[in-house]
Simulated scan of single mutants.
Amino acid sequence: MEKQYFNLMQLFEGYVRNYRRMNLSHLHNVSMFTKREIDYFAQLGEFLGFNAFVEDSKFDKLKGRSRPMDLSWWKWDARFDKEHFLYLALHLERESLPKKDVETIEKLFSQTDEGYVPHNVIGIQYIESAERIDYLNKLILNKNRVQGSNVLIIYRFFDNEFDLQRVRAYSITPDGLSEERNAIFNKDQSGYCYICFEEEYVPFKKEENPF
Rank of each mutant, 00 (worst) to 15 (best):
L71R: 05
I184P: 01
S57F: 14
E128I: 08
K82W: 07
G176W: 11
I153F: 08
R65K: 08
L24H: 03
W74F: 09
L152T: 00
L71E: 04
L71I: 10
Q43N: 04
K138D: 11
K3C: 06
L97I: 09
N186L: 08
R17M: 13
N51Q: 08
E55H: 08
D77F: 05
Q43F: 09
L141P: 03
Y5S: 07
L62H: 11
N120V: 01
E95S: 12
L139H: 04
N186W: 07
A78T: 10
L62K: 15
E131G: 12
K100L: 10
V16Q: 00
M1F: 07
F12E: 02
N7T: 02
R20A: 14
Y201R: 04
T173A: 14
R79E: 15
F80W: 12
P210Q: 11
V146Y: 12
E37Q: 14
S72G: 07
S129N: 08
L141Y: 06
E128T: 08
E93K: 11
S57H: 00
R132G: 06
Y87F: 05
E93H: 09
R156H: 00
E95Q: 11
A78I: 14
Q43D: 13
Q147W: 05
I133H: 12
S72H: 03
G64K: 03
K35W: 00
L177C: 05
W73L: 00
N7A: 02
G64Q: 05
P203W: 08
